[in-house]
Design a binder for these strands. Structure first.
Lengths: 336, 336
DNA sequence: AAAAGTATCCAAAACGTTTCGGATAGAATT
DNA sequence: AATTCTATCCGAAACGTTTTGGATACTTTT
């Protein structure tokens, strides 16, 4: 049987009230007895029962991380881990614990977002990897549970989000290709069920417009963020539009898929085709040629998401938090 | 205010006891009232308070995942995610939730393993990524908390472990190189603070012995499991022993480091040097030449770890669970 | 010397469940 | 008709905390 506050009280010859107040640093207990109680607690190896405490205080010091699509076998998210590390780091000082929920569209129908959170009494949640069409999206728009989303723009009374400036990032990537002399620039975008896809498309268009290059709808194709997505789209794109000399991608995985497709088609990167990715995953620097891409600071995304969630829990106002990005230039795009 | 069992009781005109027993499927409540109560609970959107329940039943339906070294920024573990996905899958049917602890040697000194688990009232834990010299290792050897380790051989009353058959796997990899005609085979092993390193070394030795090739201590070097580790060790190894024609690695990351080192040294893989890895991470099939390596079924490791933990919690006897591996042959090793 | 203030303590209620040990009433058995 | 069963219900205790609203005794102020 675990040792309780009662045991300590008996041992110290005081009431449980006093033990509680002593251990929690209340002022109305003498330093002498406080020390005595602390020592006894230490000796008995006392650890407070978080359930009992949570029951009365209505605080659990726990937040949830609800993820979808990120850890499916066969389709592991390339930077989920970095984000997770950031989240854990952001939670550390305040000693909040993290409980991990994985969801999919079916489970979202089975149990609502609120129920999921209430079941486990989390004080708030970070959510990541949802598609715009997921049931939780609607729910989160009107929830009262402190929430911060990653890469999904919803801003209400209780929910904020963090993301990169996708418009600007895509603008920079496309502008870079234009600066290298490219005029016929394809864009292999992510699926149209992700907010970032629209933002990146906007940035792509913006760069074209600024440089007086007409936007051609047929140069952009939507597909999964995966390698296969890139592979297939690339083949199609260059087959139908051989005049394309560069293609910008909404993810590094897609860009790598294009690498492979190019190879299969007998095209050399960057000699025959320039390629730019998005994310800067670890792989990007390992492959040859090195992939020119947009670096997202994913650790920081997680860190700020956690910090922001904590602040919302404390009652502060939700925000949109922008995480700095950076164009990192390697060898997959060349001047023409 | 959340709706409680009392509210339902009042609403239904019965006692809280009856509500509890109705909702929990006890037989001593008529089907009629049970239905009525269920309906009311549904209408009121009742979710049981897990804290209160846990307080009295002493069960939390929660297990911990304690990880070390796996999600440090700059050194993300290549298959932690797969294992995690497996764990979540293994926990699903029994509806256990997972709470994630990240530890390092300092935090292990600050709070003991038992305290960590007791604080959050987890019923058991899966632990992953510990080094043999970590403080928790000693503690886990004598803990009464149901525990299953990944890749760390400890077997007691309450703790079991899952791992690949590292001896056999290393034996197979080395034998394969020998079969290709190699005689001077280097081995870039992981650091000597991991159990798997010793097992893999044993398998390496075994293969040599079986083929009457004398074991040379200077052909094996211990280093971090990282890419840099491989890079540095490879350079050293081939510089000091240019007669080496093949090198086996304790991880794919190290093998990839060797790829890079070989390139820097003007050596071609597999023409000038044959390389074999361990793990079969995603990258292994993406690089050129494709990396010949040992595939570990990491998803299954996680899945079985979770299932086994649940069985230990239920009172069954801990075991050592072996996960099948497989030599996957690609293009990084050639016949000589 | 009386009044007010201060430091230190405590009893009891509350949080929302589960569970133990009956209680009640009608049905079945003798 | 008396007894035993059975089905259905319930009161109260228990889990381990925190918190409210005092109580006590000693100091200080008037």
């Amino acid at each position: 049987m675990a040792v309780t506050i009662k045991d300590i009280a008996k041992y110290a010859g005081v009431s449980v009230t006093t033990v509680s107040r002593a251990l929690n640093g209340y002022p109305d207990v003498s330093e002498e007895t406080r020390e005595r109680i602390k020592k006894i607690a230490e000796q008995l190896n006392y650890t407070p029962n978080s359930l009992a405490r949570g029951l009365v205080t209505n605080k659990t010091h726990t937040v949830g991380l609800v993820v979808s699509e990120l850890i499916k076998p066969g389709a592991y998210h390339p930077f989920f881990l970095e984000v997770l590390a950031g989240i854990k780091a952001g939670l550390k000082k305040d000693k909040y614990d993290l409980i991990l929920f994985t969801v999919d569209p079916e489970s979202q129908d089975a149990t609502s977002y609120e129920k999921l959170c209430n079941d486990r009494k989390v004080e708030g949640a970070i959510v990541e990897g949802l598609r715009l069409s997921d049931p939780y999206i609607k729910e989160i728009k009107k929830t009262q549970i402190p929430t911060v989303l990653i890469d999904i723009p919803i801003l209400t009374d209780k929910v904020g989000y963090v993301s990169s400036d996708n418009v600007q990032a895509a603008f920079e990537a496309t502008s870079y290709l234009i600066k290298l002399g490219h005029r016929n620039i394809g864009f292999i975008n992510g699926h149209d069920d992700a907010a970032v896809s629209f933002e990146r498309l906007e940035g792509y268009k913006k760069a074209l417009k600024k440089n007086n290059i007409p936007y051609k709808e047929e140069y952009v194709v939507f597909d999964d963020f995966t390698q296969e997505g890139g592979y297939n789209s690339f083949k199609m794109l260059v087959f139908e539009h051989p005049e394309i000399t560069a293609v910008f991608h909404a993810s590094d995985l897609m860009a790598i898929g294009s690498f492979k497709a190019a190879k299969d088609l007998g095209m050399k990167v960057p000699d025959d085709i320039s390629i730019v990715g998005f994310d800067d995953i670890e792989l990007a620097s390992l492959i040859t040629p090195g992939l020119t891409t947009i670096r997202q600071d994913t650790f920081k995304m997680g860190y700020n998401a956690a910090k922001h969630l904590l602040s919302i829990i404390k009652g502060e106002k939700p925000q949109h938090i922008l995480i700095p990005h950076k164009l990192v230039i390697r060898d997959s795009a060349r001047k023409i």
